[in-house]
Simulated scan of single mutants.
Amino acid sequence: MAASWPFCLPVDQALTLWPDDQEEEEPQFGTLLFDPADPYAVHLAVGSAPVVYTFERTLLVEALFQATLSPDDSFDEALSRTLGEGDMLLGPSDEDPWLTLTLFPEPDRHLAYRTARSVLNDFTSRIVRMVPFGQAQRLAKEALTAWLQEVAR
């Protein structure tokens, strides 16, 4: 039988993505998903025929920390703290309650959105409480062991 943790249920969070480039466009809707069985990864599904982006959960923690503007920062200094690689970037917005999320669904195309910092902060707090840093590797090994035992039956 697979290992059972009191916190093993996946966590999801609805996310509204407001176009950063054009005010008149309708927002996109997405869902953040974290599964403690894969404690390093967070998934973001965007759109009605979802495109799924997978990234490290540390990206959320670091982006929330680094996107905080101090009164002495210029916006250009804050933009230099945009994080991520590949098909997703996350960083500060020129408007305080927002973060900028840039998605690259294709190599030559990008989509820039603003999303509420508070929603990302709440989601990140939940998943870090669920799997504290330093325990992710142990939990990943336990999940793999449980899965291998289940497959062996």
Rank of each mutant, 00 (worst) to 15 (best):
P19I: 08
S93V: 04
P36S: 08
L17I: 12
A37V: 06
S118M: 12
P6E: 15
T100N: 06
D12S: 14
L9V: 07
R109D: 01
M88W: 05
L148I: 09
I127C: 02
D38K: 04
Y53Q: 02
Y53H: 05
S74E: 05
L111Y: 14
L144P: 01
G30R: 00
F133G: 08
P105F: 07
R129I: 03
G84N: 06
L148W: 00
R138N: 13
R153P: 01
A146W: 01
T82I: 04
V119D: 12
S48F: 02
L69T: 02
Q28D: 15
E26T: 15
L44P: 03
P107Y: 13
F133H: 11
L99R: 00
L111N: 11
R126Y: 05
L17T: 14
V52F: 00
A143L: 03
D20V: 03
V119W: 09
W5C: 05
L15V: 15
V151C: 13
D12F: 01
Y53W: 14
D21A: 14
P97V: 12
R126Q: 15
D35K: 01
L69G: 11
Q137A: 14
N121M: 08
P6K: 15
R57N: 02
F65S: 12
V52D: 02
D72C: 02
D96P: 08
R109K: 09
W147E: 12
A78Y: 10
W98A: 13
G30F: 01
R153H: 10
R114V: 04
A78I: 04
D94P: 09
L44Q: 06
W147V: 03
E106I: 04
E85T: 12
A37G: 13
P50L: 01
E25V: 06
A14F: 05
L17G: 04
L32M: 04
D12I: 00
P27T: 00
L139S: 04
F123N: 04
V131R: 00
T58K: 04
L69Y: 00
V42S: 05
Q13H: 11
E25H: 07
M1T: 15
D72G: 04
G47K: 03
E24I: 07
